[in-house]
């Protein structure tokens, strides 16, 4: 892991405003940004650990612990609310048996809220990793989940 991180940091550290690209690259590779790598980044960018930590915790997208194999994001914003998004949210939580920011016991899925996926013409919408789904009924949700469980 340390090796991977060091390569990423070395590749990107000379970009202007390198921190976000570095954090993205790390999270893309490892699935999260492990706290123990903060000193490595801090040293390379000549910043304090507190600064790096502040950035990681400011952004909703970055996480400091390993997520489930896949991340399910439910849109909580207005257009989806206008199309029974609240029901879908409740259904998703019940189906997965977890609340937001939690991971199922089998480690398969994490659940996160999202505020608009730009899929408002097909509300309600969800995203699983990079795949977006629109006009999702409760039954659709179960099927989509099944596809992703394989």
């Amino acid at each position: 892991m340390m090796q991977t991180v060091q390569t990423i940091v070395a590749d990107l550290k000379d970009k202007p405003g390198a921190l976000l690209p570095i954090l993205h690259a790390i999270q893309n590779t490892l699935g999260y940004v492990p706290p123990e790598i903060v000193p490595t980044i801090a040293k390379a960018l000549n910043l304090s650990r507190a600064e790096i930590h502040g950035v990681i915790s400011f952004y909703h997208y970055f996480r400091d612990h390993a997520p489930g194999k896949k991340t399910v994001r439910i849109c909580r914003a207005e257009s989806c609310l206008a199309m029974s998004g609240k029901d879908l949210e409740n259904h998703a939580k019940a189906k997965l048996g977890i609340d937001y920011h939690e991971t199922t016991a089998d480690g398969k899925f994490s659940l996160e809220p999202v505020y608009c996926l730009g899929n408002c013409a097909c509300s309600p919408a969800i995203q699983i990793d990079n795949d977006v789904y629109g006009r999702v009924s409760n039954t659709d949700f179960d099927e989509i989940l099944k596809e992703h469980s394989a």
Partner: peptide, 10 residues
């Protein structure tokens, strides 16, 4: 494009 209900940029 953070505004909910918008997708023209996308």
């Amino acid at each position: 494009e953070g505004d909910s209900g918008t997708f023209s940029d996308r």
